[in-house]
Design a protein around this nucleic acid. Sequence first.
DNA 1: ATCAATAACTGATAAATGTCATATTTTTAG
DNA 2: CTAAAAATATGACATTTATCAGTTATTGAT
Lengths: 229, 229
Amino acid sequence: MESRCENCIIRQFNSLRAMSKEELKKVSDSKTTKKIKKGDPLFEEGDKLNGVYCVRDGVSKLSKLSANGKDQIVKLATKGEVIGQRSVIAEESTNLSATAVNDMEVCFIPKESIIHTLHKNPDFTLEVLRHMAHDLKEADDVIVNMSQKTVKQRIAEAFLYLKNNFGEDEEGFLALTLSREDISNVVGTATESAIRIISEFKKKGLIHTSGKRIGIKNERKLVELVEGF
Amino acid sequence: MESRCENCIIRQFNSLRAMSKEELKKVSDSKTTKKIKKGDPLFEEGDKLNGVYCVRDGVSKLSKLSANGKDQIVKLATKGEVIGQRSVIAEESTNLSATAVNDMEVCFIPKESIIHTLHKNPDFTLEVLRHMAHDLKEADDVIVNMSQKTVKQRIAEAFLYLKNNFGEDEEGFLALTLSREDISNVVGTATESAIRIISEFKKKGLIHTSGKRIGIKNERKLVELVEGF
DNA sequence: ATCAATAACTGATAAATGTCATATTTTTAG
DNA sequence: CTAAAAATATGACATTTATCAGTTATTGAT
């Protein structure tokens, strides 16, 4: 199921769209497509990356291990996003681990073709820069949320985020199902605390659950909660 | 005291060093030098920036107001750093406020010369990209610290950070003096909590104080505390 | 130098969150 | 399908952190 980058729709959503025909050809010739099973790593914190990963399908969590042994999820990367750019550009080993949250299909693009284009094609470089500027802004927002909002607010926000970014299935559950542990690692709290708050939300009729799946029942109240009522 | 960017030492520390002679000339001709008094703003959250600020002297805090009315300081920018790049590049209004922590001298560079160079000089763009990649990594670290470390650990870390990045004066106090409120806004806690922990550190002989000035007395123990003992 | 304003500090208490222990449910492997 | 493993759930309690109320110290303007 090998296909050409030139024809890849995914590309429209990331910085590769700023590449020239020839550059894209080179990328396409050097790339390899990989399937990664749910729970398997794309790479681990500290690895030297020889390229970047372009997500064709599935979701990856980017996380960092803290001193107390807990993972903090910093970002969820989905279809169209490029993972690993930061460390390739900074020429450092990666500061984050990437793990498949569900079955994934990714293209691995060796760093040479990326770096070469970064030096030659300012449109591409600027496009990458714009994406990184966006990520930085989001990171700033996360910092503020982490330090100024309660766990309850952060969990409510996480559910809204999941709805807005990954949507819902036919039955009205969030399309991306995270384990309670992953949820707690996104909001930065103990798993038990997250579970407790989920139970509370359920009792109050803000959400409904079925197994590990969660559906939003009263979006408005969740929003109010996030804003601080 | 107007001087030319071409001769500015500060430039060596930021992305402007990747500019060509002519580009630098254009920047130098269009820039203006400003003095900003301690406590005064460079810009406020939501402002549209018409350029970037290059810090020649002094320190600026970059902060974001949270829903509960507290400021969260996201970064301290010092000599050599360029402020406001992110929003100029993303062509958005700024997500942060910048305020002078002490008397500052900055150069304001209109965005036109920056943007023009971003489109024409890939070396410059890549250099800016590298700086932003660095900022993003630091932001990731802050997220992990905020969510996984106790207030005590974060305060200890803040003192070590201040020592490593701004040094100490002749009397052994941290060269950059922040108010207790600013300290609490850096680590994301209530001012009273920060004060309490500072008192505790003092009692335990980790630091010494004189007015609002703080000096590190037992760096090793502070480091141990941060790592979690 | 003096006084008003601001910042730093302390105590008491409430609220939020983490930890540990254990029960229950769901998922997975064979 | 079933047993074992893993994940979810809940209770009791400890710890951390915030809030409110008030005092003391420092700073800045006249």
